[in-house]
Amino acid sequence: MKLYAYRFQDTPVHHLHPTAVTTWALSCMVLAVIVSEPIMLTVILLATIPYVFISRIYPNWITFVKIGVLMGVVIIFFTTIFVRTGATVLFSLPISIPTLGRVYFTLEAIYYGLAMLVRILAILTVFAVLTYAVCPDDLLDLFMKAKLPSRTAFSTSLATTYVPTLMKDMDDIQISLSSRGYAFEESRRLSYLKRKATIVMPLLANSLERAIQKAEAMESRAFGSMKGRTQFFDAPLTRYDRSVVACSLLPVALAALLYIGGLTPYSYYPRLEPIKIDPDYILTLAAIALSVLAVLIVSPLKRRFDI
């Protein structure tokens, strides 16, 4: 798995004001959390994907997707085994497991797990856009403007830039161990995992040393010496930016409407609630897609209206 650090690219998303992208991201996350109907969740996910391609963050996004799928598989596994309320039994294990008893695999549990996977992927996609299309320093300025304590804000901002370094460290340590004859590719799964765990200690030690060195360098440049840290690069919100921020609030506004209209809950158990596909439903799906895509649609206008 590879992750790269943030790098500015000449894309409409990168040119947006950080407030707009951050608001959009939070807004989309709220929508994805409130909605639980699987097709709506899928529409949310699909509507976030164009942001990935327009902002050219595909390689990093793929890593996020891999992490999401891994989490999804775990959720599907556990819901299938532990949730007993599904009515449509697809198959069952021939043996009985102590404590759990007979394990039934129900269509509803698998469906629920898959819907949760889609939700996780939608949230991770939004997070990937926020991480790789917004400069971490702009994000830091934003946090500080929101009156978050500068130390906390800075630690958060630094932590986001830290992940790619951690991934690179992990690769380097693994290569170094392999070149000293340490085989990770053991045939037995448990042994493989045990061997992989060898990386953890040097990885932690490296990270700790790196963190100490960063802290030393920051302390030597008076970090934390004043309460009122100057925000030299604070970019003001223009009229255009304010309009985009307004667009970025559409998903959360829609989430509120759907919630009030009773359209957000969906019942997976004991049987999957039937979905009635009528013009109203299709309109709702279109509204969800448009609300998520709104910021992307207006983003190329920045250069025209905001010089």
């Binding site: 320093d137 790196r210 060195q213 360098a217 920051m218 440049r221 970090f223 009122g228 100057t230 030299f232």
Partner: peptide, 24 residues
């Protein structure tokens, strides 16, 4: 690598001065 804390050259130079709360 480990003493640079911001993502751009200008920001890095300004970092210490911002911490000291200097006027813009």
């Amino acid at each position: 690598e480990n003493q640079i804390v911001t993502s751009s050259v200008e920001r890095e130079i300004a970092f210490g001065l911002e911490n000291l709360g200097m006027p813009k």
